[in-house]
């Protein structure tokens, strides 16, 4: 392993939050996917440096981290644009014009689904159902949902993103960027064990 935890690629804040996450699980590996989300807050993707550092944090090899991360659609193993636009084309959206919308988006941004615009601003993805079908066709920008999308509303959205006037609605990368747990676990294992044993004794005692 080329990097140790805190070796410098991931910010001190992210390393602190990663350690807090590890403390919530019986096994550190369970924190792997949440920590990958944290690393993407910083870089948008999982760089080799980030992967090395995550591996050291959770006690895995970098290959194990990459092997797990590459299974998941949201974890990027290549750089992405400032905004990742995920356009749903699954059945509910398709029935309400998603492919026509995707054509418009590809023309407007001058990029094919799966690629990033030359200016590094937008990565376009053809997404599977993002569970906002009541507002189909829909899309997500950095996992913030936008529904009832028309070519016109998409164009305004892009204008807003380019102008930087939408950062309240659509923050930077990372699905956990606004998620903060207040405090770690409150109950130690010994307390839980004692409580459960008492309850079990009551039950078998025919209480």
């Amino acid at each position: 392993m080329s990097s140790a935890p805190g070796s410098g690629h991931l910010s001190a804040d992210i390393v602190t939050r990663a350690r807090e996450l590890i403390g919530l699980y019986p096994h550190p590996r369970s924190a792997l996917i949440p920590i990958c989300h944290l690393a993407q807050e910083q870089d948008g993707w999982l760089s080799p440096e980030a992967i090395d550092e995550i591996a050291a944090l959770v006690g895995l090899t970098p290959a194990e981290v990459l092997g797990t991360a590459s299974f998941y659609e949201m974890l990027h193993t290549e750089p992405v644009g400032t905004y990742v636009i995920s356009v749903c084309t699954n059945i509910a959206c398709m029935l309400r014009g998603a492919y026509e919308l995707l054509d418009h988006i590809q023309d407007t941004l001058d990029v094919r689904a799966g690629a990033t615009t030359a200016d590094g601003m937008f990565t376009l993805e053809e997404a599977e159902c993002i569970a906002d079908c009541g507002r189909a066709p829909c899309l997500a920008v950095n996992h913030r949902f936008v529904g009832d999308v028309t070519p016109q509303s998409f164009d305004s959205l892009v204008d807003g993103l380019r102008a930087g006037t939408m950062s309240d609605d659509i923050p930077r990368h990372g699905t956990l960027v606004r998620v903060r747990r207040q405090g770690g676990l409150r109950v130690d294992d010994a307390t839980i064990r004692a409580e459960r044993e008492t309850a079990a004794a009551k039950a078998t005692g025919g209480a």
Binding site: I33, P34, E73, L75, E128, R186, V187, I192
Partner: peptide, 16 residues
């Protein structure tokens, strides 16, 4: 009540 438990919120990462 004498009943204690911790609850943890865990995110997936995109896989049906």
């Amino acid at each position: 009540s004498g009943f204690s438990i911790d609850v943890v919120v865990h995110p997936g990462a995109g896989a049906y």
